[in-house]
Design a protein around this nucleic acid. Sequence first.
DNA 1: TCATGAACATCAGATAGTCTGATGTTCATG
DNA 2: CATGAACATCAGACTATCTGATGTTCATGA
Lengths: 309, 309
Amino acid sequence: MFMTALRELELRHLVTLDAVATEGTFGRAAERLGYTQSAISQQIAALERLVGEKVFDRPGGPRPVELTPFGDVVLRHGRELLSRADSMHDELDRFRNGGVGRLTVGTFQSVSSAVLPSLVRSMRARHPDLEIRGRESPDDHELNRLLAAGEVDVSFIGGAPASGFECRHLLDDPFVLLAQPGRFPDGPVSVSDLVGEPMIGQPPHSCQLLNEGSLRAAGCDPTYVFRSEDNGTVAAMVRSGMGVAILPFLCLEIEDPRLAFHRLEPVLPPREITIAWRAGRTLSPAAEEFIELASDVCSGLAATMSAFT
Amino acid sequence: MFMTALRELELRHLVTLDAVATEGTFGRAAERLGYTQSAISQQIAALERLVGEKVFDRPGGPRPVELTPFGDVVLRHGRELLSRADSMHDELDRFRNGGVGRLTVGTFQSVSSAVLPSLVRSMRARHPDLEIRGRESPDDHELNRLLAAGEVDVSFIGGAPASGFECRHLLDDPFVLLAQPGRFPDGPVSVSDLVGEPMIGQPPHSCQLLNEGSLRAAGCDPTYVFRSEDNGTVAAMVRSGMGVAILPFLCLEIEDPRLAFHRLEPVLPPREITIAWRAGRTLSPAAEEFIELASDVCSGLAATMSAFT
DNA sequence: TCATGAACATCAGATAGTCTGATGTTCATG
DNA sequence: CATGAACATCAGACTATCTGATGTTCATGA
C-alpha cells in the first residue's frame, strides 16, 4: 500500500529541480529544458507546495538561487527517483527487444532432449540476460494447466491444445515400431503383423492414447505387458525381448545398434508437436521470438527426420 | 542529465497501476483510490500511451484484467519508484524534525573544549541519526570564509561576524590576567600596573587583536615576548615566568595551582562569543535547534563563570 | 545617486490533461 | 437470450501548466 502525500508529484518537477540545482538559475534551467523562466518558477513553486517547504533560497537581485538544506534532501531523493525512472526506461526498451525478463517454458521429455538444447542455446546467444526456465511434465493436461495458471508463458504440447489456447504447429512426429534387430525384416512393418504381439508402452496419457487409438482403428488391439514413463526403460524392455514398442520418432535413441526401428503400414497419424499459449494474452517479445526460433529449429529437425524414415 | 522520455510520468499513474494489479479490476481499484472506474480507465490508458505498450490484457466481458508481461516489468519498476517516493516522504518528515541530515559546525579552540562537548552530547541524545561534524580554526576570518562557502552550516565566532551573516549572541567571555601566583596581590590588577610588563599572547588575529586594542586604549602599550596559537603553551610560558598573559576566561584551565588569574581594572570589553549563519539562508531544523541548544548551554556556562570572576 | 541589467515573481489567457457521470460494448453465465 | 459484470468512450466541468508580458528586487558601476 503506497502513501498518498506525494501522489501528485511528477517526474517533471524533479527534472526541473535537478536542472535548476545544476544550472544555478531558473533562467538557464529553462533554457536547458526548453521552457520559459516563468514555467520554471511555477514548477518550483508547485514542487514547494507539494513538499511543504521552500527548496531554494532566492537571495533576490541578480544573484543565483541556492538550495535550502531541505531542498538538498529533496534533490538527493529526487535524483534517485529519476535514475530509477531512467533504468526503468532502459529496461522497457530491452524488454521490447526480448533482451530481459523471464521466460518459462512448459515441455515434455522428447522435446526437452531433441529440441530444447539447441533452442535454448540460440536464445541465450541472442539475449544473454534473459532468464529462461523450464517445467517438464509427461502429461499434456498438466502442461495445459500450467499454461492456464500462468506458471509457464508458452508450452510445447504433444497434440492439439485445449480450448482457450492458441498454438503454432511445429512438427509432425511419426510413430515408429521399435523391436529387437532381426525380429522383423528390414523395412516397413504392417500393423496387422502386430496382432497379438506383446507390447511395451507408456502410461495411458497424451500421445500414448493417440497411438493406441490409431492402432485399434487400424485393426490391431494391442496388449501391453509393460508400461513406463521413461523412454529409456521402454527401450531397455524392447532390447530384453519382452515385447515391441510403438513410440514417436523423437523418443528414440537412433544410434543404439541393439534396437531396430521400422516404419508402420499403414502410417499412423503422427503426433503433432505444437507450442501453445493462452488465447488473447499478450506475449512478451521474448516469447514471440522463442516461438519463431522453435519453429525454425523444428523445421530443421523435420528435415533430419525425413532422412531417417 | 536525465532522460526525457518518461518526463510526463506521474506517480499517480503508478499508484493506479499498482492498485489495479492488486485488486484485479478497474472498478475495485477505483473504489480503493476514491476515483470512478472511468478515471482509472483513462489513467491506465495514459500510462500505456507513456510507456508505449499495453500493460493489461482486457479479456472482455465480466472477466478481470491481467497484467501483460510488459506491464509486469512496468509494475515492478513502478513499485520501486513508489517505495522510493515513500521513503523520501518519510525522510522529509524526519528532516523537518531535525532528526536526519548532516550538520557541520565551525568552531575554535575554547568553544570546542568548553561548549561543544555537552552541546553535541545533547544533540546526539535527541537525534541519534543526525550526522554532526565540526571544523575548527583559530581564525575568525577563516570561519567566516567556511560559512560563506557553505562548508559549515553554522559557526561559532569570537566576535561580531562579517556582513552577510546573521548571528546570535551566546556569551560574554571576559579577559583575565594570567600570572605566576604571588606576582600580583590577590584580587583585581590595574591595567596601569602592566605597563612595561613582558607579555605572552596569541598570534595577532581575532580576539588577540581585540585585547591588544583594548589595552592600548586603557593606556598600556604591551610588549609581546612570545606568541603561540596554543593556550597550553601560553600558560606554560606564564608559569615559567617569561611574562604575563591576558586571555579570555574560557581559554583557562582554572584548576592549575601553578597559575593565578586576576580581574583587570578597568574591565576590558569582553570577547563576545556568537554563533553565525549566512543571512537570508534557510537553516535546517537541526541547525535551528542547535542554535537554541547552544544558547542554553552558554547561559549555564555564563552562570558558572560569574561564580569564578 | 541613479541607471542598468540580471534574476525571480506574478498575472492573464490559451491549451491540455483529468475527473465525473452517462452511455456503449463485450462476453460469461444461467 | 436476458442479465450483469467489466472496460471503453464521450461530453462537460474543472484544474494545472505553459507562454508572453510585466512587476519587483538588488548588486554593480558610472
